[in-house]
Amino acid sequence: MSAPAAFPALLVEGVERAYGGVPALGPVDLEVAAGERVALIGHNGSGKSTLLRIVAGLLEADEGTVEVAGWSTDDVHARATTSYLPDEPVLYDDLSVHEHVEYVSRLFGGDGFDEYAEEVADRLGLSERLDDLPSRFSRGLRQKASLLLGLARPFSLLLVDEPFVGLDAPGRAALMDLLDEVHADGAAVVVATHDPEFVERVDRCVALRDGEVVFSGAATPAEVLRLVGA
């Protein structure tokens, strides 16, 4: 799926969020073009996860607006076109991996567990575990199941929060290639990560510090470390 040409894939204007009266984000302005690949960087507590959760429609902003392909995040069209992968996998206890994909894909207008889902499962090393319950998986396998779930459904905007944490080397390499392919197919991709290999592949880095955007542009891995204060 691709965002309508008349609209950016993501438009964030004046978004703010506080927890218990303590500011956590904003005000943030951010625009991501259709098909753009962005690395969202920043130290822990900088607001990356909060921003992604607001864009995904899972958290309400205190101020400001967010649009996905021209739709407000509370619109069913925005939900249908946005795939969000949190840093901690969220999976049902009583569904197998195959049942997860079948359910979520069809929920968002996909074809269920189709040939592409089968291919992604194979590349992530999950082919032999499709009938198993991910609730019994290790952290790494749960992460792979979550990735499969998010990639095998329709979307034009992909949001991923720290996807490389907990992955083994083959899974990490497979995910890098899959993100490249999603981008090549026209989806906008926003990934919260400091991974230097991924940073080298993106169109733009957006750095958050204390809830505000302090940089937006091209950056080398070394510059990313400097921007986040690492």
Score class of each variant (00 low, 15 high):
Ala3Asn: 07
Ala3Glu: 03
Ala3Cys: 15
Ala6Asp: 14
Phe7Met: 08
Phe7Gln: 08
Pro8Ile: 00
Leu10Asn: 03
Leu10Phe: 04
Glu13Leu: 11
Arg17Tyr: 09
Ala18Phe: 02
Gly20Thr: 08
Gly20Gln: 05
Pro23Cys: 01
Ala24Arg: 10
Ala24Cys: 08
Gly26Asn: 05
Val28Cys: 03
Glu31Cys: 11
Gly35Gln: 04
Arg37Gln: 09
Leu40His: 02
Ser49Gly: 06
Val55Ala: 01
Val55Glu: 01
Asp62Phe: 00
Gly64Gln: 03
Val66Tyr: 00
Trp71Ile: 04
Asp75His: 14
Ala78Leu: 11
Arg79Leu: 13
Arg79Gln: 10
Thr81Gln: 05
Tyr84Met: 02
Glu88Thr: 14
Pro89Ala: 06
Tyr92Gly: 12
His98Glu: 14
His98Leu: 15
Glu99Met: 15
Val104Lys: 02
Arg106Pro: 12
Gly110Ser: 08
Asp111Lys: 11
Asp111Asn: 07
Gly112Cys: 09
Tyr116Ala: 13
Val120Thr: 05
Asp122Gln: 15
Leu124Gln: 05
Gly125Leu: 07
Ser138Thr: 09
Ser138Ala: 12
Arg139Pro: 00
Leu151Gly: 01
Ala152Asp: 05
Ala152Ile: 02
Pro154Ser: 15
Phe155Asn: 03
Ser156Gly: 14
Leu158His: 03
Val160Met: 09
Asp168Ala: 10
Ala169Leu: 10
Gly171Gln: 01
Ala174Asp: 11
Leu175Tyr: 01
Val182Thr: 10
Val190Gln: 09
His194Asn: 14
Asp195Phe: 00
Pro196Met: 11
Phe198Met: 14
Glu200Pro: 05
Arg201Trp: 13
Asp203Asn: 10
Arg204Lys: 15
Ala207Leu: 04
Asp210Thr: 03
Glu212Arg: 14
Val213Trp: 02
Pro221Gln: 08
Glu223Leu: 04
Gly229Asp: 15
Gly229Val: 06
Gly229Cys: 11
Ala230Val: 14
